[in-house]
């Protein structure tokens, strides 16, 4: 399905929060997946898998730490990343390229800040940064931004399930009082 980037980011952030991540880390998760969506990746299972298993927080913190220092996020040297984790890492690398204004050469392709040069890719379990160099200003100057993000229906629904966990169950008192108005507002 096609969604707007605004609603996608909102759902990603809330889903990440619903999975138990702190708000600020959930924002990092959403921003990185959003970068991949802007770059033209259809959001598949990798966009929600790691939230459902709740094992990604330390990696997210490590990659965010690198971005905080404008350093390239590195994959863990001890534990190889799964394909889903590699995609999330790629989102952080994309943000790094954008923030620093560099082209990042990976072992299988090249990443530019806007992501538009990324070819259609299968999921990969192994990607390494080889080098980086400054962006040539003439790179893709006329490429229009994508207006819609593509996401598998099932992934959208699974993110929605996690998002729902951030919402409080209703009580009659909250319905009447919480929003401040009575149920009949006719005039």
């Amino acid at each position: 399905m096609l969604v707007s980037f605004n609603e996608l980011e909102a759902r990603l952030k809330k889903a990440a929060r619903g999975s138990g991540l702190p708000w600020g880390v959930a924002e990092e998760y959403a921003k990185s997946v959003l970068w991949l969506a802007h770059a033209g990746f259809e959001l598949q299972g990798w966009a929600v898998d790691e939230l459902e298993t709740s094992g990604i927080e330390q990696s997210l913190l490590d990659w965010a730490y690198a971005l905080d220092l404008t350093e390239a996020p590195q994959q863990s040297s001890s534990t190889p990343l799964t394909a889903s984790q590699t995609m999330l890492w790629l989102g952080f690398v994309g943000r790094y390229a954008k923030a620093k204004g560099v082209i990042v050469d990976l072992d299988q392709f090249t990443l530019d800040p806007s992501g538009v040069s990324i070819p259609e890719l299968p999921l990969m379990e192994s990607l390494q940064i080889i080098s980086e160099h400054k962006v040539n200003n003439s790179l893709n100057p006329s490429e229009p931004p994508r207006l819609r993000a593509e996401i598998e229906d099932d992934v959208w629904q699974r993110l929605g399930v996690l998002e729902f966990k951030t919402y409080a169950p209703d009580t009659e008192a909250s319905r009447l009082k919480g929003a401040g108005a009575g149920l009949s507002d006719n005039d």
Binding site: W23, F164, T166, Y167, A168, D170, S174, R175, G178, A179
Partner: peptide, 26 residues
Amino acid sequence: WYVSQEKLEPRLGERAEEPVEPFEQP
């Protein structure tokens, strides 16, 4: 500040009186 499950609308609850703190918005 929380968002209601039923209608997804922002609401304001009383921390000491309602079980909404786990759902607090930033």
